[in-house]
């Protein structure tokens, strides 16, 4: 019985060591590090094999996009607030509510188009294969935003 337990213990320890080694070797350390630091640029660099020049160009592209993003964000927020005010007022003005809903939809469509253009511009700066992977990952998420809802404050997709 003592030898049986000893042997089982040794096999379990060896299995744990092998499992741990496969876990460490099977992952992507750069991706894990970027995820731990919530560093999107580090992720882009490692996952899409960016050179320093490509990363710099993408950083500039994002910086140039930021003011337009902020402006769109402001317009969307105001439109949502106006629509929500109409909803909570329980006013019997269906036409005004419909117009407010339509404005939110139009702004969402504008934002989606701008974002699509932005990620396509970023993809164009990558190598063709990496650009394809980048678009294949992001475009469905952009298109699915309205159907799945916004991510939560911890940035988890719904």
């Amino acid at each position: 019985m003592k030898f049986l337990l000893l042997t089982l213990g040794l096999v379990a320890a060896a299995a744990g060591a092998v499992g741990g080694a496969c876990y460490c070797l099977g992952g992507d350390p750069a991706l894990r590090s970027a995820a731990a630091r919530h560093d999107a640029m580090a992720w882009l660099r490692s996952d899409f094999h960016l050179t320093d020049a490509q990363a710099g160009a993408i950083g500039k592209l994002h910086a140039a996009y930021a003011p337009a993003c902020d402006e769109h964000c402001r317009l969307v927020r105001e439109a949502i607030q106006a629509r929500d005010a109409l909803r909570s007022a329980r006013a019997d003005d269906a036409a005004a509510l419909a117009a407010a809903e339509q404005k939110v939809r139009e702004l969402h469509a504008t934002c989606e188009a701008a974002l699509n253009e932005q990620v396509r511009s970023v993809a164009a700066l990558m190598s063709p294969e990496d650009g394809r992977r980048y678009l294949a990952l992001l475009l469905p998420m952009i298109a699915g935003y309205g159907h799945a809802g916004a991510p939560d404050l911890h940035l988890h997709a719904p």
Binding site: D28, A40, W43, L44, V76, R77, H108, A150, P151, H156
Partner: peptide
């Protein structure tokens, strides 16, 4: 390890898109 890589990549992609998407920002 592979499942964690997929989850990490998705979380990073979501965070990245949120930083670019005015709809999410709003």
């Amino acid at each position: 390890a592979r499942a964690r890589t997929v989850a990490d990549r998705e979380a990073l992609a979501v965070g990245y898109l949120v930083s670019l998407d005015p709809r999410a920002q709003a």
